Structures are given as C-alpha cells and as structure tokens.
Amino acid sequence: MVDTSAAIRRGHPIIFILFTALSFITAVIASTLVSDYNSNNNAPSDGVNGAVRFLVFCGWWGFLFGILFTVFFLTGKGGILTSIAGHGIWIFLTWLFFVAGAGALTNNVDGSCGNRGPSFPYCNSVKALEAFSWMAWIILTLMLGIVAFVGAGSFRGGRSVKEGLA
C-alpha cells in the first residue's frame, strides 16, 4: 500500500487554490457578460445567454466551496466534508456542473464567434469564458482521479471513505 498522505498534504492546497482561482476568473467573466447582456439587451442568442448564466453559478459555486474545502483541509476541521467521500461527492457534482456549462457554451458559440460580426457582441470575452471553464473542468477531472485513487486505496487498506483525505 502506497502512503499518499504526504503528497496530498502538499498537493491539496495547491490544486484547490488553482481550481479556486480558475473558478473566480470564470465567475467574474460570466458575471460581467450577464451584466452587459442585461444592460444592453444584446445577447447573441438564448443559448449563449443561458450558458453564460449557468457558468455564473458554476464559477461562484466552485470559488466559494473551493475556499471552504481549502480552509477546512488546512485547519483539520470539517468532519465528513473533508473526508474522501465528501471530496468525491463535491468534486463529482462540480465536475458535472462545469462540463454542462462549458459544453453548452461551446455548443452555442459554434467555433469562431468572430465570423458572426456585430451580431455576436463581446466575442473575446465569451471565448475567454469558454477557455477558463474548460480549464477548470480539466483540473476537476484530475482532482476526481486523485480522489478515486485514494478512495480505492482506502478500501483496499480496510479503511473507510469517511476518514480524512490525508
């Protein structure tokens, strides 16, 4: 059995801070786009508008819970929230949110929004939102794999997934 606790104690804050930063950037870009679309009434389509609004939720969800998980992990508090199961459930749910939001935006942008001309306002911001939401999803995929690896190791070692991650 490989002891992963030292690597997790070092890596957990790093990967969660990276994810939290990407979530914050996603939330700010999406919030700005929603504000601009609302004030100017110029959303390129209902699909883009809906995807951007959902990514506002995803970004702030990831940012707030990312901070909570990091603080609870560093302080050693949080109980079931900071357990292997707690991490797995939250990461999987957040992974689903981000893949749905990023996929919906990608589907509604249809490649290069620059080809649409003035009918697609804030094209560069939409493309940046798309990129940051996919980057957050990639980080979540990595986190989900690590939690699955640690969870499988805890089952093989006779431990419970209710125990702490490290």
Rank of each mutant, 00 (worst) to 15 (best):
S23M: 04
L105E: 04
I146Y: 12
G76C: 07
F132W: 05
D36V: 07
T4K: 04
R156N: 05
W60V: 09
G78Q: 05
F69W: 14
R159E: 12
A51Y: 10
I80M: 04
N49H: 06
S119T: 15
I139A: 10
T70A: 09
D110G: 02
A136I: 08
C123I: 01
L96K: 02
M135P: 00
W95H: 09
R10N: 12
I146S: 07
A136M: 10
G164P: 04
G47I: 07
N42T: 01
A100N: 05
D110F: 13
G117D: 03
T82I: 08
S83P: 04
I29S: 02
R116Q: 08
F69I: 06
N42I: 01
G103M: 02
I8K: 01
F97Q: 08
T106R: 02
S133G: 00
A148N: 03
L93H: 13
G153W: 01
S160H: 13
A27W: 08
A166V: 03
S83M: 11
A6P: 14
P44R: 06
L140N: 10
G103F: 00
G79M: 03
L33D: 03
F54Y: 14
L68F: 15
N107Q: 04
I14W: 09
R159A: 08
G101S: 05
N49W: 00
A21C: 12
I29R: 02
